[in-house]
Design a protein around this nucleic acid. Structure first.
Lengths: 373, 373
DNA sequence: CTGAAAGCGCTTACAG
DNA sequence: CTGAAAGCGCTTACAG
């Protein structure tokens, strides 16, 4: 099949696709003019600034109308090849992660679309070689920015770190990459981190429980605070919340697992025996919603009424949290605020101040009150 | 910042990116040879087929080693501009849809990656103008294929249908688009549909419940079968399953809502009153997991033991189904099989027979037995 | 102020 | 059998 690129084909290609040159022919101007008008680089009258091209208002209007009527969009590949900044954000999601990241992905997509960007996704499997493949592929595709919903630090070798660095603006080829955002932790210097303020979330939960008259608060952690910074955050928030009321944590009501996730029933049972049976807790703050659900299951089997007997508060506000019976009170991850922070870093509004590397943004959590506490 | 494209820059650009021409210089061959070798179009010896280029085995090995060592990937924009087939699949997801589609998305991504493809995502909002924007954007980006996790039919105007048609292989510009797959229903002729066999899923659920000794089976539908083809499927499966045991549905144990979703507690309560209190049901097949959870909530409040008193089976196998207490028995959507069917249509293995337009593939469901039935 | 021309990085038909 | 050259659709520095 031969392409018809003869002069007879004056108003479009055989396959119906409209190119800039077709628009130019139809409007009776040169491609340069169409490019300038549609790219917003055309002005009219003497007040026109530098860098713009003088095009009559009538001509500009005609070109805009033509482009709209034909549904013209400049070919992304041609623009990319010419060096125009990409409008695709790569998003890497830990494959083993819960659906919380997909809920967050949806929030990011919504906002990215508003700012004219698309998301290209990939799943990571804790395998540095496969992660490197994704990064090389994203680089070859000219990805504008990278968002990583996964902590590759534990298995991040030098090769991988170098590949991540290519998405830093400073090292990027001619502004090809706009930035790199990690969640909670970055394996390299210079990348941004957007994190939810877990400590503040737990602090709010503590304050809420105390205001309800609960006095024997328990904390159930997935791992020892010393072994996991994310657990340390929860622990700090727990201490801070109690301190505000002149209280201190009771060690009998602080339990931690060995890092196994999701918890097996035996672990949840052990936690309940420790903080409720032995510790006398009237409220439990769990590491996350999955843990909270596991605890609720045990509490029900042991005849402990929730929330009358024991309140339970989770973290993440999974979609499942609202469906659970009883519906879970939880520390929400505030996906909308997260998405805004990420996009303000990766797609800053034009004309804003440049963003220094290595920003660490903390997003406030939102306590979502339902039935369990 | 000026690009250094001088001859002195013999082994790469200043920014570290490696181009095909750099590889050619390093290997001491012309770009044509490198392109042929890396593209698998190079052969050696007299047995070389047509369309291939003769390149010595040693030279080919040297080029492969060089490319691997430098982490070379051809620039996707340049390949796209040259007319090479794209390896990006666009995925449109209904924004109002439950997370089931994101779980499915993950399954599709896993398989697409194995076949060298990336996913670019977008969310639809039941707004034809915004959907059209996504389609034009995907077209401009040279998307290889489109997968639509959303039924745009109710508000699909002529403009939108024409835009969808551009992703059909027949109308596509020179093989740019490989295909178009909808879920459950296509608004245009020629597109493929991949669907889960809901009727078969319900039939299996009925057989399972009968084998357990349940005899008073109920069906709770979100909408009248006549108003919603997806509900009609469930109804057909229900009849078929009962017929296999020489039984017929009892109208007192078939309830349907008015299409409102998700159900409000009053609707779930009405359904329980109808099929359990009045109908005497000892098992309920719900339209989906969300409905099943709503029913379980009501049953618990009314002191009906599940599954001893009444079994409940959902559909979708949401992530939340496994977390629920009691864990939900459900008709799973078999995301792995769904993903395989979609990719066999959109990225058929090389050398296979061409796929006729308008395929309708039905994926078998999988009954997931847990605690509720 | 307008228009022709170069060039982004590839692939491939074509000339030597 | 090998290598130079054209061209994909844009944008932009440059010449008229």
């Amino acid at each position: 099949m031969a392409r018809s690129t003869t002069a007879a084909d004056g108003n479009g290609r055989a396959d119906g696709r409209v190119r800039l040159i077709d628009l130019a022919r139809l409007a009776g101007v040169t491609p340069s003019v169409v490019s300038a008008v549609l790219g917003g680089r055309a002005g009219d009258g003497p007040g026109t600034g530098s860098g713009t091209v003088r095009v009559g208002a009538a001509t500009a209007a005609r070109i805009h109308a033509l482009a709209a009527r034909r549904g013209y969009r400049p070919d992304a590949a041609a623009q990319a090849l010419k060096g125009c900044p990409s409008t695709v954000i790569g998003v890497l999601i830990g494959a083993e992660s819960t659906l919380a990241n997909y809920e967050r992905l949806a929030a990011v997509e919504r906002l990215a679309d508003e700012r004219g960007h698309r998301l290209m996704i990939g799943q990571l499997h804790d395998d540095p070689a496969r992660t490197a493949d994704y990064l090389r592929d994203f680089r070859a595709r000219g990805i504008a920015a990278l968002l990583c919903f996964h902590n590759p630090a534990p298995r991040c070798d030098a090769v991988l770190r170098n590949l991540f660095r290519e998405f830093l603006p400073a090292d990027a080829p001619l502004g090809h990459a706009h930035g790199l955002v990690f969640q909670t932790h970055s394996p390299i210097r210079g990348a941004h981190v957007v994190d939810v303020d877990r400590a503040e979330g737990v602090r709010q939960a503590v304050a809420h429980l105390l205001a309800q008259g609960r006095r024997r608060l328990a904390l159930v952690l997935n791992a020892p605070p010393a072994a996991d910074p994310l657990m340390a955050d929860r622990w700090q928030g727990f201490i801070a919340g109690l301190a505000e009321a002149g209280r201190k944590p009771n060690p009998r009501r602080v339990w931690h697992g060995d890092g196994t996730f999701p918890p097996v029933p035996e672990q949840a049972a052990a936690a309940v025996r420790a903080v409720v049976d032995a510790g006398g807790a009237d409220a439990i703050i769990a590491s996350n919603d999955i843990w909270a659900m596991a605890l609720l299951r045990i509490l029900r089997r042991r005849g402990r009424a929730v929330p009358d007997n024991v309140a339970v508060i989770g973290m993440d506000n999974l979609y499942a949290a609202a469906l659970f019976d009883p519906a879970l009170t939880t520390i929400g991850q505030n996906n909308a605020a997260f998405a805004r922070a990420v996009l303000d870093l990766l797609v800053p509004p034009a004309g804003g101040a440049p963003i220094p590397p290595g920003q660490h943004i903390t997003v406030p959590p939102e306590l979502v009150l339902r039935e369990t506490g």
